[in-house]
Nucleic acid binder design. Structure first.
Length: 471
DNA sequence: ATGTCC
């Protein structure tokens, strides 16, 4: 079955590389239904882009650049574009592995959801359990997840199971605006709203026994999935630098086909300042997911006490970020600025950037489904390094806009329907529920099937939701 | 995604 479609370079004036769409044929109609392929063609025109502009099967329209998009620019003179990273800098996913089986928690599942909802603050604009002062937030921006560990809100063992160790050293808080600081002081340890969640899952199916053994996953086991990012702080960094680049780009002789797709050369003053601020926001997000993990462990211990065992971190991935990486291009190793917007790094066996204990299997790749549908644990492959700059999909991918979803979905009925399927929903907003209804998303099973067939990731386990905590 | 418009 075909899974890769290419729009040749000459199709439109200004294209510097071909545009590639990874999707099974039955997904194509939905993909052509919004503006995402037009946006992909715009990306193929960005100065310094290498090989191809790519989208994953979960692609949908985003701000300037499609969500589910990947673009690698020549280092150091190719462009960096905040639209290619997204407003939620280092939005990402982490998976905590419990030592309990579903039958050991089923009687207390509702109690657990309530405790998780109490312990992990959620909702738009909501503050958290900690309020940082300026010096503390500056340290969070520099140190990422390590700050949580050093201050009693994390576990040192977690650090080796976070992409990039949970910190980007290029971060420099002096390029994060006062406004962004103000939005960040009270938001550490909060999940936010939209599609962000904490989810209790059961391991439903194992596809690859050997990899599952290394990942320490088995059928029936309870795991917890966390999906959130850098909250208002990262959003403000993106807003600030999109505005700066919109006026700066003409000074570098750059013209964009879309005002939303602002960019500047990576090695320019504005490019360097944005990158340092982006790394700081990414560090905030990794610290945020570490503090949320601490909150979840508190709730877990409260409910299960001594019988609860430990919640270990399998892995933490970023899916809205730019990374400086080396890749094989035109049969030589070249340094590139890889933009992943709604795309997950999926490095394969033997890659030196992943933890040693995953060297034989490839890194864990975490793919959340929509609310009430399955999620997946995949493993990265060498195929992704050959084809997609070591990247794959990030989730189900929106099919309907938030507005369209609200028109079609009645939240009270939706909640009841999910309850009937055995899924507890703990949410502060009915409107948010309607926007995140499964009908608003593509079929995650098809998304995962595509990346598996394309050889850019392989299936390890399927997860089924039992309880969802969201804003 | 987001104090969903300074």
């Amino acid at each position: 079955m075909p899974y890769l479609w290419e729009i040749p370079m000459g199709t439109r004036p200004g294209m510097l590389v071909p545009a590639q769409i990874y999707a099974l044929e039955e997904m194509i109609d939905a993909i052509l239904n919004d503006n995402s392929i037009e946006q992909l063609i715009h990306v193929s025109m960005l100065p310094g882009i290498m090989k191809a502009a790519m989208v994953m099967p979960d692609v949908h329209q985003g701000y300037g650049f499609p969500i589910g998009g990947i673009a690698a620019m020549r280092w150091p003179d190719g462009v960096i574009s905040p639209g290619g990273i997204g407003y939620d800098i280092n939005c990402g996913v982490r998976l905590l592995r419990s030592q309990l089986h579903e039958k050991q928690i089923s009687a207390q599942l509702e109690e657990l959801s309530v405790e998780l909802y109490k312990e992990v603050p959620s909702g738009i604009g909501k503050g958290g359990q900690l309020t940082l002062d300026r010096e503390q937030l500056t340290q969070v921006l520099k140190k990422g997840a390590l700050w949580a560990v050093e201050n009693g809100y994390g576990d040192r063992k977690d650090l080796q199971n976070i992409e990039s160790g949970g910190v980007l050293d290029f971060a420099d808080p002096q390029y994060v605006s006062e406004h962004a600081f103000q939005r960040g002081f009270a938001q550490l340890g909060t999940i936010g709203a939209g599609n962000h969640f904490v989810e209790v899952d059961r391991v439903e199916e194992i596809y690859d026994e050997e990899t599952a053994r290394v990942f320490q996953l088995q059928k029936g086991q309870i795991v917890i999935l966390i999906h959130t990012g850098s909250r208002g702080l990262g959003h403000q960094v993106a807003t600030d630098y999109i505005r700066i680049m919109q006026t700066a780009m003409s000074r570098y002789g750059l013209k964009s086909p879309d005002r939303e797709l602002a960019c500047v050369p990576f090695d320019s003053k504005e490019g360097q300042e944005y990158y340092k601020a982006m790394c700081a926001a990414a560090n905030f997000a990794w610290c945020n997911r570490e503090v949320i993990t601490w909150e979840i462990r508190k709730a877990w211990n409260k409910v299960f006490g001594e019988n609860g065992g430990k919640l270990d971190l399998l892995y933490d991935v970023a899916h809205n970020i730019a990374k400086i990486e080396e890749h094989h291009i035109d049969s030589k190793i070249q340094k590139v600025i890889v933009h992943r917007k709604g795309a997950t790094r999926a490095f394969g066996p033997g890659n030196k950037e992943i933890p040693a204990h995953f060297l034989q299997t490839g890194q864990p790749v975490l793919i959340p489904g929509s609310m009430g549908t399955n999620s997946y644990v995949l493993a990265g492959t060498r195929g992704s390094e050959d084809l997609t700059f070591g990247s794959c999909c990030h989730g189900a991918g929106r099919r309907l806009s938030r507005t369209a979803a609200k028109k079609q979905v009645e939240a009270v009925q939706l909640k009841k329907k999910l309850q009937d399927q055995g899924i507890h929903i703990q949410s502060g907003s009915f409107r948010g529920l309607a926007e995140e209804a499964p009908i608003a998303y593509k079929d995650v099973d098809l998304v995962v099937e595509t990346v598996q067939q394309a050889g850019i990731a392989k299936k390890v386990a399927k997860l089924r939701p039992l309880a969802v905590i969201k804003g």
